[in-house]
Design a protein around this nucleic acid. Sequence first.
DNA 1: TGTAATGTTGCAATAATATGAAACAAAACA
DNA 2: TGTTTTGTTTCATATTATTGCAACATTACA
Lengths: 104, 104
Amino acid sequence: MKQIERKYERRAEIFKALANPLRIIMLEKLAEKPWCVCALAAELSVDKSIVSKYLSQLKLAGLIEDTRKGTLVEYRLVAPCVLQVASCAEETIQEQRKKLLNEM
Amino acid sequence: MKQIERKYERRAEIFKALANPLRIIMLEKLAEKPWCVCALAAELSVDKSIVSKYLSQLKLAGLIEDTRKGTLVEYRLVAPCVLQVASCAEETIQEQRKKLLNEM
DNA sequence: TGTAATGTTGCAATAATATGAAACAAAACA
DNA sequence: TGTTTTGTTTCATATTATTGCAACATTACA
């Protein structure tokens, strides 16, 4: 399997962007309202360089978009449905994990 | 943000398991029917050790489960809805990425 | 028992990500 | 212009992931 279709690579990129607790929290914040980098950094007590980098990862994955407003850059969520995935799967999965851990 | 809630770590683990093209393909195969390691390895032309390792990652994330049947170990999908996430977001996201790439 | 079929794990080399500090860039405005 | 505010990028280091081969484990069955 050396020429994995691009479709799956793109899909994996999306999941990769989601594969970090802080980035998930950031997306949830962005689901409430648009945020600029500095406000989000303050809200989450994280260095602005990390927030900026994470936001650009999410943007590259196509999950958010941004607009510059003066010295601020405002980010907002583009695909709110991605956050539903988690809740969709979570119940089933938690059941499953409980089973699994009991076996160990 | 040094004590990220466990909820988000668990969620990130799920996405991490999904963050690889081959693992996504494997999940799609498992959505069709249960597979054993050797058959899946043959189907995808991948070494069985990799298939086995990826399957146990997916299992640990709670996405699939397994049953030994003689010398075979049969794996099957537990949370089919996770595959819908991709399609759910994909259309919006592809639009978004097109916009983004045109800007570059 | 011992041999074949199937799965899992350990190891090592390589590649990719994460992290935070510091340097740099862009816009606003005195 | 030059100073402030906000964002982005660079760099170095540490951690984690990927990959394939070889060794080991489990089950079935002659």
